[in-house]
């Protein structure tokens, strides 16, 4: 991981049984409470966490994408246009949203990832702004600033049991749960596989990686496309959940928010960091917007991120705080220091 010197072996930090217990507890949440506020906060946090996982996967290759919200917008618009304006059923349009978002990510990535580093970040900002402006002005397709009202998926009937998305939030919650678990498994497997290791080597030392026969562009584009597909899914599901899409929902500041969630959660852990970061920041933001003080959520968001960066060691985020607690209470640390020549700061 490029931001810190310390690489923590996550297998030793939190045992599987604790993770399993947390997952089971989350799966049972709708049994304890059907309160709108709790469920919708959890649903939105879950959806954002998928986008954050995509961001962290791109970060693994050393690139800093500032246009992830644009892929959510593309996914959202594709699903909204297919269901509302062309009258297709929801689930095929949901799949189409991810696929089209992935294809666009592939195309953009092939052109844009040639310029790495800061240029790449700037280009992704420009790309996000282009998507927003096109959505705002292409009235015939996107209905401009007024946006498109989306419909919930049609009820699914299994025997005499009906899953109705229109009447309550529990089906939304369970599909979000399924989506997050599926993406988490995917990203976790990718991250620990050989491909994930290659991503890290591309980030840690591009020159050395290239000399070892790793095609840099290929792996950057793979990461960018995978992130694009899942971010598209997240966008398509998010607009269905909040039942509207317009150009203001996914602007540049949402991309910044995705980045902030990954920092607060901790980008060393692709799944845990994303979920912790998005849940903490989204719930916090949701709580703060209910306060009578205008704009306080911006202030607190900024302050939280800066404080996490300043006071948690080497920017490892909240998951590492949990890991530290766990190691202190239950287990001795197994912490590896990355050898100096592999971290970027020591190149000079």
């Amino acid at each position: 991981m490029i931001i810190g010197r310390y690489y923590i072996d996550q297998k030793s930090v939190v045992p599987k049984i604790v993770i399993g217990a947390v997952i089971a507890l989350l799966a049972l949440v709708p049994l304890f409470t059907t309160s709108m506020v709790t469920l919708s906060t959890l649903i939105s946090s879950g959806i954002w966490s998928i986008a954050v996982m995509g961001f962290i996967l791109i970060l693994r290759t050393g690139q800093f994408s500032m246009g992830q919200a644009a892929f959510m917008a593309i996914g959202g618009y594709v699903s909204a246009i297919l269901t509302v304006r062309l009258g297709l059923p929801y689930w095929p349009s949901f799949l189409a949203a991810g696929v089209i978002s992935g294809i666009i990510a592939l195309g953009i990535g092939l052109i844009v990832l040639r310029a790495g580093g800061t240029s790449f970040s700037i280009i992704t900002i420009a790309f996000g702004e282009i998507v927003r402006i096109v959505a705002l002005n292409w009235d015939d397709v996107t209905r401009g600033a007024s946006g498109i009202l989306t419909k919930p998926p049609a009820p699914i009937t299994i025997g005499n049991f009906e899953i109705n998305f229109a009447t309550n939030l529990v089906p939304f919650y369970y599909f979000m749960f399924f989506l997050v678990i599926a993406s988490a498994l995917f990203f976790w497997q990718i991250d620990r596989s050989r491909v994930g290791g290659t991503f890290r080597s591309v980030a840690a030392n591009p020159v050395l990686a290239e000399h070892l026969g790793i095609h840099l562009m290929k792996y950057r584009v793979i990461a960018f496309t995978m992130a694009g597909v899942f971010t598209g899914f997240a966008g398509a599901y998010y607009v269905t959940f909040i039942s509207v899409i317009n150009p203001l929902i996914f602007d540049l500041w949402k991309s910044v928010q995705i980045m902030m969630m990954s920092i607060v959660g901790g980008p060393t852990l692709i799944v845990g960091g994303a979920i912790v970061g998005s849940t903490v920041l989204y719930s916090l933001g949701n709580y703060l917007t209910q306060l009578p003080v205008a704009n306080v959520q911006y202030l607190v968001f900024g302050a939280v991120v800066v404080l996490v960066l300043l006071f948690l060691p080497k920017g490892t985020g909240l998951v590492d705080l949990w890991g530290k607690f766990w190691r202190k209470v239950f287990k001795e640390p197994e912490e590896y220091e990355i050898p100096g020549e592999f971290s970027q700061e020591d190149e000079e």
């Binding site: 490029i2 931001i3 810190g4 010197r5 970060l59 800093f64 910044v256 980045m259 902030m260 920092i263 980008p267 003080v293 205008a294 704009n295 306080v296 959520q297 911006y298 202030l299 607190v300 968001f301 900024g302 302050a303 939280v304 991120v305 800066v306 960066l309 300043l310 080497k314 920017g315 971290s343 970027q344 700061e345 020591d346």
Partner: peptide, 25 residues
């Protein structure tokens, strides 16, 4: 030493929100 570009980039971006929130309040 020990920090990459990400930490300081993220911090200055977070300060955007911090100052806007402070000014708004």
């Amino acid at each position: 030493p020990g920090y990459g570009l990400l930490a300081v980039t993220a911090a200055t971006m977070a300060l955007i929100f911090f100052f806007e929130g402070a000014a708004g309040m």
